[in-house]
Design a protein around this nucleic acid. Sequence first.
RNA 1: GCCCUCGUGGUGAAAUUGGUAGACACAAAGGACUUAAAAUCCUUGCCCUUUUGGGAGUGCCAGUUCGAGUCUGGCCGAGGGCACCA
Length: 846
Amino acid sequence: MDRYNFKLVEEKWQKFWEKNQTFKSGADKNKKKFYCLEMFPYPSGKIHMGHVRNYTIGDVLARYKKLQGFNVLHPMGWDSFGMPAENAARENNLDPKDWTEKNISTMKTQLKKLGLSIDWDREISTCSPDYYKHQQNFFLELFDKGLVYRKENYVNWDPIDQTVLANEQVIDGKGWRSGAQVERKKLSQWFFNISKFSEQLLDGLNNLSEWPNKVKVMQKNWIGKSYGCEIDFKIEGDLPIKNIKCYTTRPDTLFGFSFLALSVDHPLSKYFEKNPEFQNFKSECSKTGTTEESIAQAEKIGFKTNLQAINPIDPKMKVPVYFANFVLMDYGFGAVFGCPAHDQRDFEFAKKYKLNIKTVVRPEDQSDDYLVKNAAFEENGVMINSSFLNGLKTPGEAIEKSIDYLTKNNLGKKKINFRLKDWGISRQRYWGCPIPIAYDKSGNIVKVPRKMLPIKLPEKINLNTKGNPLDHQKKWKEIKINGEICILDTDTLDTFVDSSWYFLRFCSPSENEYGFDSEDIKYWMPVDQYIGGVEHAILHLLYSRFFMQALAFKNSNFIPTEPFKGLFTQGMVCHETYKDENNNWLSPDEVFSEDGKNFFENKNKQKKVIVGPSESMSKSKKNTIDPERIISQYGADSVRLFILSDSPPEKDVQWSDQGMIASYKFVQKFWLLHQKIIEHINKKDIDGEDNELTIYTNKLIEKFTQSLEKFNLNVIIAYLHETYNFLNKEINKTKINNLKDNYLKILTLMFPLLPHLVSECINGLKISDKIKWPSVEKKYLEEKFVNIVIQINGKKKSLIKIEKDLEDKQLIESIKKDTKISSILNNKGIFKHIIVKNKLVNLIIK
RNA sequence: GCCCUCGUGGUGAAAUUGGUAGACACAAAGGACUUAAAAUCCUUGCCCUUUUGGGAGUGCCAGUUCGAGUCUGGCCGAGGGCACCA
């Protein structure tokens, strides 16, 4: 018998698929389609195990759907703009383009070795001008629709590197590279008006029945719809401002009003600019940075003004006005009405500045003289000390009545607010899509005419400059528009813009005039199954949903839909972490163990290794396993099998060398079994039908298909082992007349998981027709005998095999004859019995 | 602090959705084959019993039910998300 040579076989079939264009999506638009998409990778250098898992899951699905007769679109591309290229280029004095292209070529070769069923003719790369020229066009389209605007916004500013930092580049309030204290700085930047679609984006979630609930909840919280009220406060003091608008969700607690707090960026702050104490306070606030973490940890501080705010609902009540660090300018109106008794944050502020704390809500089980003492009371309750609201339940009645009152007296109105902020898309970086906007001599915005697109990035420029590299490109910046010299915007677009429409581009990757062809979109969209990491649960997925809305806005040819009908978020690949005595990370290759418990360094076998917890594979912790090495050692099929076998795909999976070897052995074992089966088939001397094998096969088809539909890929691999065990045991007893048919069906089930091995096996069956996903023949699922569990008082006591569909009386009689049961019954009377047809009988005895 | 998810053998996990708990696999121990090793195959798995057999058992405590890993309430633990959002 031959050993299975995965190297030869895998190479052979990969060549075969390529030559026959097996994975090219069909042009026939009358056929049922299936769009299977995995999140496209950032070309960081080499593929990692996370990619292997992600793309294997997608590949199993794509191959399965293809066998079911769907016209499958399964493309791949590169999310190739972004900071790593720029950083790597700067460090090694390279060009980001060269670096990126080299990585793409490496990773493409690696992905091909995995045997993925990808239509490579549709490959796209976001850093290619062929791609981003359409994106620049979309930018202008949205600009014309009024969905893009320019606004001053705060950024994390590194004063040493003279650059803007992303939130994750700020560590403990300091720049990751320079270590300088990060400042808040105002910059004029471009924004997409995503908040305009808050309502649609929230509503749309209800239709996404094939999305994980977790992701929908995260998006819902992110959008953050709240029901409340907008209130006008009159201001007394020596300033020309006489009114301040506030947003609140608790207008019922207005009688507990104790201070008004403003953001330091509130328009009113301009009257305090010259006050040195206010300046101090403001810079104190700005030191906290813009990261959420730092804001959350900051102490609540305030700056008292000489102003007073009047309670609209009780004009005799006048309270001080403060500036406070906990009030954000971009939510509500940058002003908060403080009610310390019923808001913990206000409570802490009031304690610190010794402000009045008036209780206006009591718990339902307390009397009207209830007083708030150590913490704010934020629960449901009953109104007290609140004039016409007294005795009402809150929230509910009391909120309704207070809004009614404010509306009738023209003091405020009902308002729905969203937490979702507009999407800032300007990045002060080189390696991104240039913004197709220029400025004339007077600084006015000038759109770059469409026929001048794309605005290409300048190549081979010096990146070792301070600030934004494009700023230094004097020649590039100058552009003649309608005869006038203008200066291009030197910012580039957030790379999330690139990935917000790439799934549309895959439908028409070579369309030249526009980003996509509307006929193609109508056929292929939405993506039937999108697969990727849960880390993109909010931003990428929300932005993509927004992009569909924005394209459809004021465009009757484009119907707004959800881009991703089904979403699957796979878990990460984890590995134990290792450190040496000096606390340096060690890679799995650098350690060894004889007993699996004690680990030592390879270099110096005396040195003990500290084994840390298993964490998701990352270069920084050195706990990675290189897929390329594993593929060349064990073959693509074995790796695919292992990466899916140990855990459900939505959960994290533990890398295990033993598990990997076991998968490899399975492939080898199966090949031996295959040869035995072929030998058997060729005997042609045992007559008759083999019902047992046919029944087994049909049961398998049923449960295999069900589990596959539910993405229980680890379970179908268990069935695979079961099937191997069954065939291996039964093969010599099997009659061969229908062996070939059943075996082909079994191989077809296995094909999506182990495409190379199975292709080779099917080849050995000498079958000329194309294989199809097998369907269940119901008649083989019906059995004459069933196993019935016998319980006594709810506890399992025995199991009998008996004819199906017996009458209750007959069944009970047969059960009484069972030796175990009769000995337990011992002539005791049966008090009651419960029968679950063909499954279980529960006898109740005293 | 709020929201979500999850707790099953030594390990990764199954369980037709309220009906045989631990399928399948990894690891371990014992055995078979072998001159030996590797490879392969078989058996075992918590407690009591020599065996036949019996019992406990799905984080903990209650409840619903003929019957609970699955449903309800409370508690404990782990993971993830959000957070001065007014």
